[in-house]
Write a protein that binds this DNA or RNA. Structure first.
Length: 277
DNA sequence: ACGAGAACCTGTTTGC
DNA sequence: TGCAAACAGGTTCTCG
């Protein structure tokens, strides 16, 4: 489940396992991802050293030693599966791209829904690349504060839930963490986005930061088919306060409300109608 | 310009 | 039990 905390967890796992290694072989087994891979995709990566792995929003940024940057988005169902040298696993039906490092470690991009993508760009063009240039602030950066959020939401007549899913408002939140952050901030997902300013905006910023930090510390959420780069499972799913808890009791002390599920912008939203206003 | 809804693709769960 | 509909972590395009 690749929202920001899951992508960050994958980034850390990948860093430990393959940063500083050289790409020995790259195989594009199925190039028709959301954005088709160019025919020279493998050739441009093979032989290059992976100097650093970064992240912007939900994108992994693999910096190569020749100034190229390979960026990867996991979409809804994408995962990166690691195999140690000498493994004997045949490639699965949905393992579309395979990277073999110079020490034999293998990284496989597995994405059965093919909403994920990967593309090559350069350091110089990274921030202006069409996939990255419209992204809003990183929620864990200092630049993301109450004033910035207020400005981004000003005049918006869409529900707050939908506004926070908009990656140009703040980058990295997805369906789970939007519900969780709104619960922590005590704000209704149905509230008009433009009404959030001042102390409410400050509180929401802090809630977003806190829920993301907690989730990263727990190693992400990990639903059914998602595996972290390390191969271990994330534990944050056990801490969801509202997500996937329709009909359950609200965990706020003395609240006595029940978690409700509504559909907004064709996606499920979970919240407590009693303590979120 | 903005916001709502559909589309992209495949697998799993739910409901009749 | 069997089949069809609903649903799933995201993003982008079209339409009004």
């Amino acid at each position: 489940m690749p929202e920001l905390p899951e992508v960050e967890t994958v980034r850390r796992g990948l860093t430990a396992r393959i940063e500083g290694r050289r790409f020995a072989r790259v195989e594009a087994r199925r190039p028709d991802l959301r954005v088709p891979l160019p025919s020279d995709f493998a050739a441009r990566i093979q032989g290059r050293l992976l100097s650093r792995i970064g992240r912007r929003a939900k994108y992994l940024l693999l910096h190569l030693d020749d100034g190229q940057v390979l960026f990867i988005h996991l979409g809804m169902s994408g995962r990166l599966v690691l195999h140690a040298r000498g493994h004997n696993e045949p490639p699965g039906k949905h393992e579309h791209v395979v990277f073999v490092m110079d020490d034999g470690t293998e990284v496989r991009f597995d994405d059965h829904r093919r909403f994920g993508l990967m593309a090559l760009t350069t350091e110089a063009e990274l921030s202006s690349h069409p996939f990255l240039r419209a992204l809003g602030p990183e929620p864990l950066d200092k630049a993301f504060d109450g004033a910035a959020l207020t400005a981004a939401l000003k005049g918006k007549r869409t529900p707050l839930k939908a506004a926070l899913l908009d990656q140009s408002v703040v980058a990295g939140l997805g369906n789970i963490y939007v519900s969780e952050a709104l619960f922590r901030a005590g704000l209704s997902p149905r509230r008009l986005a433009g009404t959030v300013k001042g102390p409410r905006a400050e509180k929401l910023v802090e809630a977003i930061r806190a829920v993301l930090a907690d989730a990263i510390a727990a190693g992400g959420s990990s639903l059914r088919d998602y595996v972290q780069a390390s191969g271990e499972l994330g534990y944050f799913q056990h801490r969801w306060a509202v997500y996937d808890r329709e009909g359950k009791d609200c965990s706020t002390k003395d609240c006595k409300g029940r978690i409700r599920r509504v559909v907004q912008a064709n996606r499920s939203t979970f919240y407590c109608p009693r303590c979120q206003r």
